[in-house]
Write a protein that binds this DNA or RNA. Structure first.
Length: 889
RNA sequence: GGGCGCGUAGCUCAGCGGGAGAGCGCUUGCUUCACACGCAAGAGGUCGCAGGUUCAAAACCUGCCGCGCCCACCA
């Protein structure tokens, strides 16, 4: 720990006229790290609060979506820390199987090599080297953003502890019969040459073709037509299927057709999976290349001719003339050949239809028989996962995501977890020559079944998401029963994007419940996707990317953070552009300058509030507004409505604290009376200091930099979160808002008069008030009225003694303004006439409502009273406007 | 095919039963000793359309139109 804040050199220097983020942020962050503010322990005796980060890919750079997600994390975490929780934000990165392997392979390709030349072991070494070199980049970027993570616990999905967790999880599921090996169609990416889970396939409409062609019956008695979007697969056809109830084809079932290129006879079968209404009602069956056909093939004992290689070229199982073609060439060639022999019966082109694509490289997915693959049996896992969300052990925010989650679970099918890659957690299963399987946490020496020492490990690695799903507990030490796990698990909250709700969130819940017996987190916040200011998705090709690092360099992390927080609504899309960062930058500067004004007159130390009865009415108003803001911020953040919190703070700080609080307080702050100076300074400093604490989770740097100048403690990072005061609703009890409203009205009305009548700023105005309540009020607040409304003097006048003046209206009283110079009545006449017209429209609507008998009978009294008061006010305002118009001639 | 979300000021959005709001942009006037990264005043909206519920609807219900997203084995 360093010394007290007063030893902070920057805190004793005079404040520059503009806030300099670049000179501040890195310095403060380094100090926070050095002082260990972000480190959490399991034995503090405090309430735990824990968030694990959605681990970004080690290959990645921090993008704007991360920035949004991290700002939300940090807002929650910094507030919880201030609220006294033992707060842990656990950071880390994901090894990202395919993505990382592809990056390193590309690097190798640039050197004229490939991974097969290098060999498995050396390739993996190479990836680790790459990780050591570039994997830390994203950590630095997170620090630039201000993320208050406990860096001493930084984890990586491939580090030793997590590798062990993966093996224990695998073996546990295996022994429970929830992991099995089987041969079935998988989603195959021919570019990455690996299988993918259903969730890693993105369906997208493609302009394809629907070709109808004819198979001739083997007995020469006619033909049967079939339709397909993938005509090349007819080389792997094993039959034709029709619906059992389809009378058109009833006679044909049991007959065979002759394949035009292979000469084989293929059976015509009846199967209920066929939709008679589609196409010709007859379906060609390619069991090895289509999921529906696979099942039909199984039911009718058909063979499984695999006509494609791993790279989606035609294999040696097809007639010579087609071998070696890739799938698209083959599509054209087969069509040509069928056309040449007169078998094409129809062509629909373009024919848009959905096709699966690889979520990494966007190559079209091939349903392919790749040999034996590993699967997780999901049925026993999904039931408790669904129940946990339905019974409230896990809450989604916004709650509409609950429905998506449960529906996804309902439709979930077994999860293919083996990947034909090198980079990743290798499947912990060994095979002996007799084909026995040994699944083990520690590398075995011999087959568990027969004791044979000649065993070989499965060459495949696990789906990246298999290790990611363990993240909330593997990072805390699981499977060991560590203190961290006992203290911080289940974690409190997970914040992530909807795009990985299924890929990641749902699987954490399933595996967490099975492996730890508890939910992995109690709350899930799903945020939207950051788009550009026009709502268009950001992408390199569109050139509308906002790089958070650039923006931090230009405007500061606080500016970026505030801009993001301000936009972070519960909507599915978060529009975000440079103007939002600019808004944040200006707000940071506004805070800085407001502090400059207050601190110039403030002696230092923790601000103390003078007794309430010693305060002026505007000061009490300011306290009330501050309380309202605190309550709004608390409610918003408790409900994870980040935008609401940011907007509330912005509105209060700028439009209430600065525009009215500081402006009204200035005179006393700089006046001659030392008591007044002290009182005003204390109130403003008190509100400012507490506002800084409320703002700190959003804008940690500028708030810290200012806060230290109070000399109220070491750091705002560990300062307590403001609590509501016992007097927090005194404004309502005393009619304070009304009184302050009159003051604002007087000032605004005079200002508007000056503007409406084009009275030059330097021309003096005199305010004439008739004797009475308003006169007493104006008298009491003559100083701020004169100063803020820019008037020279206030006179008390008798009735009918208005003189050459314009009558304005304040509340229910008249107010006369005398301009020292002539003004242009023409300019004003139009504006007033329009105001009158608008007013009349409103009046009509209000009086119609009031005279409605139903309203009188059924509306609650307070609504009626309010409505009456409104109409009254409109009447008065109308009178004043009419008088003004008359006064203008 | 199933599900979800959105159509409110020029732009992007908040509001979600009794006063139509914010940010940015725009107009006008201000170098007023915290801030021109600012201050003050202002213009601008039949709250997608049509019905219904209600004393009262931008908000609740129904239908329609138009966008967007997710899920999905109709070849």
């Amino acid at each position: 720990m360093t010394g007290p804040a007063t030893a902070d050199r920057s805190a004793s220097e005079p404040m520059a006229t503009a806030y300099d983020a670049a000179a501040t942020e890195a310095r403060l962050y380094a100090e926070w790290l050095e002082r260990g503010y972000f480190r959490a322990t399991a034995d503090s005796g405090r309430e735990p609060f824990c968030i694990v980060i959605p681990p970004p890919n080690v290959t990645g750079a921090l993008h704007i979506g991360h920035a949004l997600e991290h700002v939300e994390h940090d807002m929650v975490v910094r507030r919880k820390r201030m609220q006294g929780y033992e707060t842990l934000w656990l950071p880390g990165t994901d090894h990202a199987g395919i993505a990382t392997q592809v990056v390193v392979e590309r690097q190798l390709a640039a050197e004229g090599a490939d991974r097969h030349q290098l060999g498995r072991e050396r390739f993996i070494e190479r990836v680790w080297q790459w990780k050591e070199q570039f994997g830390g980049r994203i950590v630095e970027q997170m620090q630039a953003l201000g993320d208050s993570c406990d860096w001493s616990r930084l984890r990586f999905t491939m580090d030793d502890g997590l590798a062990r967790a993966v093996r224990v999880a695998f073996v546990g599921l295996y022994e429970a019969g929830l992991i099995y090996r089987g041969e079935r169609l998988v989603n195959w990416c021919p570019k990455d040459t690996t299988s993918l889970s259903d969730s890693e396939v993105e369906h997208e409409d493609v302009d394809g073709e629907l070709i109808t062609f004819a198979y001739e019956l083997s007995d020469g008695s006619g033909e049967i037509q079939v339709a397909t979007t993938r005509i090349e697969t007819m080389l792997g056809d094993t039959g034709v299927a029709v619906h059992p109830d389809d009378g058109r084809y009833a006679d044909l079932v049991g007959k065979t057709v002759r394949h035009p290129f292979t000469g084989q006879d293929l059976p015509i079968v009846a199967d209920a999976a066929v939709d008679s209404a589609f196409g010709t009602g007859a379906l060609k069956i390619t069991p090895a290349h289509d999921p529906v056909d696979f099942e039909i093939g199984q039911r009718h004992d058909m063979p499984l001719p695999n006509i494609l290689t791993a790279t989606a070229h035609l294999s040696d199982t097809v007639p010579e003339e087609f071998r070696g073609l890739d799938r698209y060439e083959a599509r054209a060639r087969v069509f040509e050949r069928l056309e040449a022999i007169g078998r094409i019966r129809g062509v629909e082109r373009p024919y848009p239809h959905p096709v699966g694509h690889c979520y990494r490289c966007h190559t079209e997915i091939e349903p392919w028989l790749s040999g034996l693959q590993w699967f997780v049996k999901v049925d026993p896992l999904k039931v408790p996962a669904k129940q946990a969300a339905l019974d409230g052990r896990i809450t989604f925010h916004p709650d509409r995501w609950l429905r998506s989650y449960t529906q996804w679970l309902d439709d979930l099918r077994d999860w293919n977890i083996s990947r034909q890659l090198w980079w990743g957690h290798r499947i912990p299963v060994w095979y002996c020559l007799d084909g026995h399987q040994t699944a083990a946490v520690e590398d075995p020496d011999a087959c568990a079944a027969c004791g044979s020492p000649e065993i070989e490990q499965d060459p495949d690695v696990l789906d990246t998401w298999f290790s990611s799903q363990l993240w909330p507990f593997s990072t805390l030490g699981w499977p060991e029963q560590t203190d961290d796990l006992a203290f911080f698990y289940p974690t409190s909250l997970l914040i992530t994007g909807y795009e990985i709700l299924y890929l990641w969130v749902a699987r954490m819940i399933m595996s967490g419940l099975f492996l730890t017996g508890d939910v992995p987190f109690r709350n899930v916040v799903i945020h939207g996707l950051v788009r550009d200011a026009q709502g268009v998705k950001m992408s390199k090709s569109r050139g509308n990317i906002i790089d958070p690092l650039d923006e931090i360099a230009k405007a500061g992390a606080d500016a970026l953070r505030f801009g993001l927080a301000y936009q972070a609504t519960e909507a599915q899309n978060i529009p975000f552009g440079p103007e939002h960062i600019d808004g944040g930058r200006r707000f940071a500067n506004k805070i800085w300058n407001a502090a400059r004004l207050v601190l110039e007159a403030y002696p230092g130390g923790a601000p103390e509030l003078p007794p309430l009865e010693a305060l002026t009415m505007p000061e009490r108003w300011l306290l009330a507004r501050h309380q309202a803001c605190l309550e709004e911020v608390d409610a918003a953040l408790d409900g994870y409505r980040f935008s609401e919190a940011a907007q509330s703070l912005h509105r209060f700080f700028w439009s209430e604290f600065c525009d009215w609080g500081l402006e009204l307080g200035k005179a006393a702050l700089r006046g001659d009376d030392p008591d007044e100076r002290r009182r005003a300074g204390s109130v403003l400093a008190w509100v400012l200091e507490r506002s800084l604490r409320l703002l700190h989770p959003i804008m940690p740097f500028v708030t810290e930099e200012i806060w230290r100048r109070f000399g109220a403690g070491d750091s705002i990072v560990v300062a307590p979160w403001p609590e509501p005061q016992p007097w927090h609703h005194f404004d309502e009890e005393t009619g304070l808002e009304d009184a302050f409203g009159v003051l604002q009205d007087v000032i605004t009305t005079v200002r508007r008069f000056r503007s409406d009548y084009d009275v030059p700023a330097k021309a003096s105005l005199r305010l004439a008030v008739p004797p009475g309540a308003l006169q007493l009020f104006v008298d009491e607040f003559h100083e701020p009225i004169q100063r803020l409304a820019g008037i020279e003097a206030i006179d008390v006048i008798g009735d009918g003694d208005a003189g050459p003046s314009v009558k304005l209206l304040i509340g229910a009283s008249d107010l006369f303004v005398r301009a020292g110079h002539g003004f242009d009545p023409e300019a004003a006449r139009g504006r007033i006439a329009k105001q009158l017209a608008d007013l009349d429209r409103d009046r009509e609507r209000a009086s119609a409502k009031l005279s409605n008998p139903g309203f009188a009978a059924k509306a609650p009294p307070e609504v009626r009273r309010k409505q009456e008061a409104e109409l009254e006010a409109m009447d008065l305002r109308r009178e004043a406007l009419t008088a003004q118009l008359e006064g203008l001639g």
